[in-house]
Computed example of a mutant assay.
Amino acid sequence: MAKQFNVPPVIFPSGNNPNPNPTAQRNRPATAPFQPPRSTPSSLPFMSFDIGTAATSLPPPLYGASATVIGGGFEDEPPLLEELGINTKQIWHKTISILNPFKLNPDLHEHADLSGPFIFLMAFGLFQLLAGKLHFGIILGWVTVSALFLYVVFNMLAGRNGNLDLYRCLSLIGYCMLPIVILSALSLFVPQGGVVIFAVTGVFVVWSTRVCTRLLVELASCGDEHRGLIAYACFLIYVLFSLLVVF
C-alpha cells in the first residue's frame, strides 16, 4: 500500500496582493460588486462646510432686491394695509369731507380708490341685514350699473372733451353713498311706512345728490355746462338706493 504525503498548495504571490496568506484571504468578508470605497467623515464635503463664510457665499439678490431684505426682520416690513394699497388717512379725510356738504373739498377726491366705497357698501348691506333684508348682491350690482349709467350720460354730454373714466365714477358714487348708509342706520329706529321716513329719506337723497354732482363738476371737464342734467342723473341713482331702505 502506497504511503500518502500531505503536500501544501502552491500559491504564486502577485503585486496587488501583499499578503499571500490564504487563511487571511479566506476569512476576509465579501464585499458587494461595484461598491465605492468608504470614506472617512473628514473627507465628506458637508463636513468641511464653514458656517462663518455662509453669509459671504450667498448669491446676489435677484430682480433688484436689496441685501437688507434677506436678513431683515418683521420691523423692516411695511404695514399690511400699505401693501394692499389701502390708505386709511385718505379714506378718513374723504369721509369727513362728505359729511360736510357745504365745505366739500374736491381736491381730496382727485385720486380715486375703491377701498372707501367698498367699506360703505358693506356697511349699507349690514344695516339692511339688521332690518331683515338681504341686499348685498343687489347693492353691488346696482352700484356697477349706476356707474355705467353715469359714465355713459356724462360722456355723451361732454362729447370728445369728457375725461371721466369708469373707475372714478365708481369711486365717487361709492363715497357719496355715505348719506344713504346713515339713512339705513337711522331707519332701524324710525317707524316704517310713515311720513317721517319719507321726509328723512328726501333729505339724505338731496344730500348725496348735491355732493356727487359737485364732485363730478369739479373733477371732470365740461361738467359745469350740464350741471342740471348731471344732478338729475345722480338724483335717480340715489333715489334707487333709498327705495331699498324705505320698502
Rank of each mutant, 00 (worst) to 15 (best):
residue 95 T to E: 11
residue 83 E to G: 09
residue 89 K to F: 03
residue 104 L to R: 01
residue 66 S to R: 11
residue 169 C to L: 00
residue 136 F to S: 08
residue 141 G to C: 03
residue 153 V to H: 05
residue 113 D to F: 03
residue 153 V to P: 12
residue 72 G to T: 10
residue 136 F to G: 11
residue 98 I to K: 02
residue 83 E to Y: 04
residue 71 G to E: 15
residue 165 D to S: 12
residue 134 L to E: 11
residue 70 I to C: 06
residue 128 Q to L: 14
residue 139 I to Q: 14
residue 181 V to A: 06
residue 99 L to A: 15
residue 123 A to E: 09
residue 203 V to S: 10
residue 111 H to W: 00
residue 72 G to H: 05
residue 94 K to Q: 15
residue 132 G to A: 01
residue 190 V to L: 09
residue 106 P to V: 11
residue 93 H to W: 00
residue 108 L to K: 08
residue 180 I to Q: 01
residue 144 T to P: 00
residue 192 Q to I: 06
residue 173 I to E: 10
residue 166 L to V: 05
residue 142 W to A: 14
residue 161 N to P: 10
residue 69 V to F: 15
residue 120 F to K: 08
residue 169 C to N: 08
residue 123 A to K: 05
residue 187 S to A: 07
residue 177 M to P: 00
residue 162 G to A: 03
residue 152 V to Q: 05
residue 99 L to Q: 12
residue 193 G to C: 10
residue 85 G to A: 04
residue 175 Y to I: 02
residue 186 L to I: 01
residue 173 I to Y: 02
residue 102 F to L: 08
residue 110 E to S: 02
residue 78 P to M: 06
residue 172 L to C: 01
residue 161 N to A: 14
residue 116 G to A: 11
residue 164 L to V: 05
residue 70 I to E: 14
residue 140 L to V: 14
residue 116 G to W: 00
residue 118 F to A: 04
residue 201 T to F: 09
residue 183 L to S: 00
residue 100 N to S: 15
residue 157 L to Y: 02
residue 168 R to C: 07
residue 153 V to T: 03
residue 169 C to K: 03
residue 68 T to S: 15
residue 162 G to F: 12
residue 70 I to Y: 13
residue 186 L to H: 06
residue 175 Y to A: 00
